[in-house]
Design a protein around this nucleic acid. Structure first.
Lengths: 196, 196
DNA sequence: CCTTCAGGTTAACGACCGCTAACCAGTCTG
DNA sequence: CAGACTGGTTAGCGGTCGTTAACCTGAAGG
């Protein structure tokens, strides 16, 4: 895992703060002045980095969907000949890492999609669909008794389970990141097993 | 189950349409004129029934939380001496019914809470907390090996799973209400079992 | 029949918000 | 050192939105 060590660019600062604010109060509930203030500049200064408020949301959502899909593709590709069980575990682990490390993005991901311009929304939907279908394939390999529609429903439901992290205590009440990840992982596997 | 047969009042019409619109485009994304139009009257006419836009959201959220809690209390109370397994099944069934029948409300329930006035928000939070603790008690009875914090995390996660219904195909692709309910039920039980 | 009132209407106000315009400071670069 | 570019600033415009004001209509009631 290659970790960034160099300082974040201004663009990245803005995106991070915008994600947090959008997740907290909704896209329409946050003004450009607030986003600017969060990174130490004032409202219209943002327009040196983005063409508009919509563009920030679009970049965030496309980025999330793309990142998830890329990671998942990599995990599946890399595991050639490996038993399906382990591939599924790898997918689950990747999704959990994401849900735990980027809570605001997970929140935005299924909440503000309809605020996008048509072209962006279609792109995000397509990326999401690919991600789901990738999971469906692996799940059906591990649990062959599942029909395709059932598997798809099960995958969506497990996403709901894994994406519940924002509701798990405001960072502090939960018993450590590792334990939480492990719990979510076990529950996800249990849910799939019971779906069959 | 007592089913209403009389015509809905205007207030109820408004609440229903407002819930749908808020769920679709977010609280700030919907104008009062739109809500009015959805029930055949025009914008300011709404103020004959509600003191403001906020009041509609407040009534919706308090209503949901109260309804969920009341139903759950009833289910637990009524089952005295019944094995915990069946009580848990009853809670799950109730939550699924709600998630399947009132999708917009389920969506609002954890999305627009922060748009409420302080006093209303505290009330809703308290109702939600009671609901969660009620589940935690029953879950720990069935799975005694679960610590309280773990059980609470597990309950939140299962809520995430059950509340995923809005993401399951736009009503039509899923294989019938009964089958979906059954699948969700099995997955929820499987998730709890695996949490232990 | 006159009054009252519930439940609408349209007009308009004030606040806010996204965005543009115009300007400016610092820092490279030929 | 002149010029250009980067990344800011403040002022302000235009549109939208929640809410209020003022008015209207039809039905109920004594």
């Amino acid at each position: 895992m290659a970790t960034r060590t160099d300082a974040p660019t201004r663009r990245e600062q803005i995106l991070k703060e915008a994600a947090r604010l959008f997740a907290e109060r909704g896209f329409h509930g946050v003004g450009v002045d607030e986003i600017g203030a969060a990174v130490g500049i004032s409202g219209p200064g943002l327009y040196r980095h983005f063409t508009g408020k919509d563009a920030m949301l679009a970049e965030l959502l496309v980025g999330i969907s793309g990142q998830l899909l890329t990671g998942a593709k990599w995990r599946v590709q890399e595991a050639d000949g490996v038993p399906g069980e382990q591939v599924l575990d790898s997918l689950i682990e990747g999704h959990i890492d994401f849900a735990l490390d980027d809570r605001p993005l997970i929140t935005l991901h299924d909440r503000e999609l309809d605020r996008l311009r048509d072209t962006d929304r279609k792109l995000v939907r397509q990326l999401q669909r690919q991600y789901v279908e990738l999971w469906v394939g692996v799940v059906r390999e591990v649990y062959p008794a599942l029909s395709e529609p059932t598997a798809r429903s099960a995958v969506h439901s497990v996403f709901g389970l894994l994406n519940s992290t924002p509701h798990l205590g405001r960072a502090g009440s939960l018993p450590g990141r590792g334990a939480t990840a492990e719990l979510l992982h076990r529950m996800a596997r249990g849910a799939f097993a019971a779906a069959e």
